[in-house]
Design a protein around this nucleic acid. Structure first.
Length: 923
RNA sequence: GGGUGCUUAGCUCAGCGGUAGAGCACUUCCUUCACACGGAAGGGGCCACAGGUUCGAUCCCUGUAGCACCCACCA
């Protein structure tokens, strides 16, 4: 016997362990069609958040669905070393010990990061398991931890080196001194994508560059006065009349004693500022281009940690860049060269990682040449070999690839794949798969390895094939590439999706995946971005296990970057979770995610809905409880030779089941998880529980042997099928219940996971049964409404009189059902209805009357309201039909339908007015 | 500057060229032998605004406003 209510904690852990131990998650190397999903490998920087849980729910639902459909499923999972992010996390830890990574040295530091990685990786995989992820943990598991691959494990590293070497040999990877985005806090280059440009309040300074001693000059506008120390020119627009005479002349560069030329370049916008621009090719991307066009060499004035270097006059050397700005402005002011200082909104490039202002810096870096790769990446999408869901994300993808720059892949960090390039003393470079190979190439010269590491996304880009064993020609590559769908966030379309397409195409000739499902971004219930500093983050495990208010508050306010947020966070937690969070269980959480997964771009996570779906789980649990109570140990019609009688209700629920099966199939095919979840929800609750179970109670109470057998068989089989239907979304509860229900339906199996997924059988759709049930439901609802409006106590049974019969094929059965469902003492035919003040309603051809005298005034009011409602509807319909162009041009079906409605309204109105007349006569 | 998405019930969201929907919240009644994490009956919407197309627009088109996001080298 099942417990009275569903307790997720009692079943989840046990089932997961059994599934995993039994090896159900693994792929089977057989003839079945392959179904493969690549997990976006989570960073080993911490724990999973709601976005991960959401994404993984969808992936798991897809994988479980296809596994049950007989596919050879392989959900390839792993974790990402996340270069910069992870290095930062560990550096912070070391800082708390009062040390820096330089105190440890590179080797010891990397050792330390590995230790952290083990811990964080374990947390992540534990969370995924709690969520029920049926991931192929043992696959590509180089480290024997049943956690999939790690992007820095030996196998993945080998693929990285191989790719790097091949790209170098093809001329697609090159090294060069270029202006790159430099994060001075981290001391590394970052890619364009890792720079966030935000509008901020700043100033615009206007500075005079004199022609010579005291005779006027050119006024330039700048937001960064300190960079004038690195200026090589002043540029004006070639057509600007103000400056025609100056082009080719020289001006005095303040504070330096240098003279720089005035040059003409189209880049200058004469309408902006003063129309004259200082040119600093060493620290500005535009100026770099201008300098190149005019043969002016850049001057670097900054050290790698953003202090002024020896290229500037002595009094500024060693100053930090913002300190330098102050000093430069003061000195200019003192010299009378500062013409104006205005407040100004400017776009400030900040490092996505550290938030410090990024400095364009001239450094030696490695790049990937993108042009050809990008063109191919665009083509495969244009040809439909890779499709985005929702489709509009294609535009975003295209836009980026159409304007792509070469990719700076070197990072001046310690944590990551060290670049497989070696230098000899003469400065020659040897790119090789290993030091041995490099040595052979270098023919005995002393070698020094490039200290830099690769951008994390370099190895991520290879995952679709490196995880399947590339560069070996493996069977798995053959089977699982391309994977079927990539489920990921829009924020990494550029970082990851596009780069996977390009790399996978280049090295395998295949696309990495056929579909890209871009999932919504998870926000809080008010649509605010979840962030630790607001206190509105949710830990998926807290929703599964529940958490007390005190514990939640403690968690939310621990380890804050800015302690001043504490009060705000506390207020948020206090108002949103005054009683903490109840334990909803993994199934309810998953069901919530699925229900909210429409094609909208954000997902506002609503605790109320999670609660609603927890209730749904409980409803399902109790439906199963009812079924078991009524079928265990009884004849459920397993013996096909025994006679079975099926009522229209039995045939109806079976018919509806076929429809919901078809709906769910379509929903999964379209990645409309909300529709899949909604279809099952409505079927289980609104149809099976609300109607079928209630009717089954009657059928069991007064059934003969054959119909009892039929009812029990239908109860059990329908439930068993619904469990399989729901399993991909709610794996735990369905497994638990299926184990008990399935044997009664004659099914055997160790697990529901590997049972066939229900398939709609259109021949079981029974139009007659559906029509009968629709009539019964309509009559029941009408009778109940009359009762409620007459304020009858539930215990009081009255008779319902009718002028005509409900249009059902089995009237005696329907009458009995109606009496039970609407608590009627009798259901009698009486035409005409007796003169009475009793409440009357119109149902198609029939009038029905509760056999109960009520206050005539109240009843008149009720009917008058109904008359008014019908009159309004009638008027609308008649207006339509009075319009000749409607009748002529609308489809005949629509016109016909409208005419029928008018007829119905008129008939109903006539009957109601008739009744109204009687009531008036009696008062 | 270019691009994308959104605006529907108090809240969070579906939907659709022809009678406006769900969950939660709300009102009334009910502890009936699966379930109060429940049952029954209700209330609640100028579908952002303005034009256009159409017999008919919440839906298609154009524009406006507001919100959000992405990309981009104006000092």
């Amino acid at each position: 016997m099942l417990d009275k209510s569903f307790d997720p904690a009692a079943i989840e852990q046990a089932w997961y362990q059994r599934w995993e131990a039994a090896g159900y998650f693994g792929h089977r190397d057989h003839a079945a069609p392959a179904y493969c999903i690549q997990l976006p490998p989570p960073n080993v920087t911490g724990t999973l958040h709601m976005g991960h849980a959401f994404q993984q729910t969808l992936m798991d639902a897809l994988v479980r669905y296809h596994r049950m459909r007989g596919c050879n499923t392989n959900w390839v999972v792993g974790t990402d070393h996340a270069g910069i992010a992870t290095q930062i996390v560990v550096e912070r830890q070391i800082e708390e010990e009062g040390k820096s990574r330089h105190d440890l040295g590179r080797e010891a530091f990397v050792e330390r990061v590995w230790r952290w990685k083990q811990r964080s990786g374990a947390t992540i995989t534990r969370q995924m398991r709690r969520l029920g992820a049926s991931a192929n943990w043992a696959y590509a598991d180089a480290e024997g931890q049943k956690a999939g691959y790690f992007t820095m494990d030996a196998r993945m590293s080998r693929a990285v080196a191989e790719v790097f070497v091949r790209l170098y040999e093809e001329g697609l990877v090159y090294r060069g001194k270029r202006l790159v985005n430099w994060d001075p806090a981290l001391g590394t280059a970052v890619s364009d994508l890792e720079v966030d440009t935000e509008e901020e309040d700043g100033r615009l300074w206007e500075i005079r560059y004199p022609f010579g001693q005291g005779e006027g000059g050119v006024v330039v506008a700048t937001t960064r006065p300190e960079t004038l120390l690195g200026d090589v020119a002043v540029a004006v627009h070639p057509g600007d009349p103000r400056y025609q005479g100056l082009i080719g002349k020289a001006v005095q560069l303040p504070l330096t004693g240098r003279r720089v030329p005035v040059i003409a370049d189209e880049y200058v916008d004469p309408a902006f500022g003063t129309g004259a621009v200082k040119i600093t090719p060493g620290h500005d991307f535009n100026d770099y281009q201008v300098g190149k066009r005019h043969g002016l060499d850049p001057i670097s004035i900054l050290t790698l940690d953003a202090h002024l270097n020896d290229a500037v006059p002595a009094q500024y050397r060693g100053l930090e860049r913002f300190e330098a700005r102050k000093r430069v402005v003061e000195d200019l002011k003192a010299l009378g060269l500062l013409i104006a200082e205005k407040p100004y909104r400017l776009r400030v490039p900040r490092s996505g990682r550290t938030g410090v202002i990024v400095e364009p810096m001239l450094t030696d870096q490695w790049f990937v040449k993108m042009e050809g790769l990008a063109r191919d990446g665009l083509e495969v999408v244009a040809r439909g070999e890779v499709r985005f869901f929702p489709e509009h994300w294609t535009a975003t993808y295209n836009q980026w690839l159409e304007n792509i720059q070469d990719w700076c892949i070197s990072r001046q960090l310690w944590w990551g794949h060290q670049i497989p390039a070696w230098y000899d003393d003469a400065g020659n470079v040897y790119v090789a798969r290993s030091e041995d190979e490099a040595r052979r190439k270098a023919a005995g010269a002393a070698l020094r390895r490039d200290p830099d590491v690769l951008d994390t996304w370099f190895s991520s880009a290879l995952v679709p094939f490196s995880s399947l064993g590339w560069p070996e020609k493996t069977k798995d590559l053959e089977t699982f590439l391309p994977s079927d769908v990539l489920v990921t966030g829009f924020d990494i379309i550029f970082f990851w999706v596009a780069r996977m397409v390009m790399m996978t195409r280049h090295f395998t000739g295949r696309v990495p995946f056929r579909h890209v499902y871009i999932n919504a971004i998870v926000r809080d219930a008010e649509g605010e971005k979840m962030s630790k500093s607001k206190g509105n983050t949710l830990d998926p495990l807290d929703l599964i296990d529940g958490i007390s208010f005190e514990a939640l508050l403690g968690k939310s306010t621990v380890g804050l970057m800015k302690p001043e947020h504490r009060q705000k966070i506390e207020a948020y937690v206090r108002s949103h979770f005054p009683a903490g969070i109840p334990a909803f269980g993994a199934d309810a959480l998953r069901f919530t995610f699925a229900s909210l997964a429409s094609f909208s771009r954000t997902l506002n996570f609503d605790l109320g809905r999670c609660e609603g779906y927890r209730n749904f789980c409980n409803k399902l649990w109790n439906a199963a409880r009812f079924v078991l109570m009524n079928t265990e140990g009884k004849d459920c019609g397993l013996d096909e030779r025994q006679p079975v009688a099926l009522s229209f209700a039995d045939r109806w629920i079976v018919s509806r089941l076929q429809r919901v099966e078809a709906e769910v199939e379509q929903a999964f095919a379209e990645y409309r998880f909300d529709n899949a979840a909604g279809a099952v929800y409505r079927f289980v609750w609104d149809e099976y529980c609300d109607w079928y179970v209630e009717l089954a109670k009657l059928q069991l109470a007064d059934a003969d042997e054959a119909s009892g057998r039929g009812t029990r068989r239908t109860l059990v089989r329908t439930l068993e099928t619904a469990l399989r239907l729901l399993h991909p979304i709610a794996p735990f509860i369905t497994e638990e219940l299926w184990q008990k229900v399935a044997p009664l339906a004659g099914k055997r199996g160790e697990t529901i996971m590997l049972q066939p997924y229900p398939k709609s059988q259109p021949e079981k759709i029974d139009a007659a049964a559906e029509r009968d049930m629709a009539a019964l439901m309509e009559w029941t609802a009408a009778a109940r409404t009359l009762r409620a409006e007459a304020k009858l106590p539930p215990a009081e049974k009255v008779a319902l009189l009718r002028t005509a019969d409900p249009a059902v094929s089995d009237l005696p059965y329907a009458s009995r059902a109606l009496c039970a469902l609407a608590r009627l003492s009798a259901f009698e035919r009486r035409n005409p209805l007796p003169e009475s003040t009793a409440p009357v309603a119109v149902l198609g051809e029939a009038r029905i009357m509760l056999h109960k005298e009520v206050d005539p005034a109240a009843e008149r009011q009720r009917i008058a309201r109904e008359v008014a409602r019908l009159e309004a509807q009638l008027a609308r319909a008649e207006t339509k039909l009075a319009n000749p162009s409607f009748v002529e041009r609308a489809p005949p079906k629509v016109v016909e339908q409208e005419r029928a409605r008018v007829g119905d309204f008129q008939a109903a109105l006539a009957k109601l007015r008739d009744q109204l007349g009687r009531l008036q006569a009696r008062s």
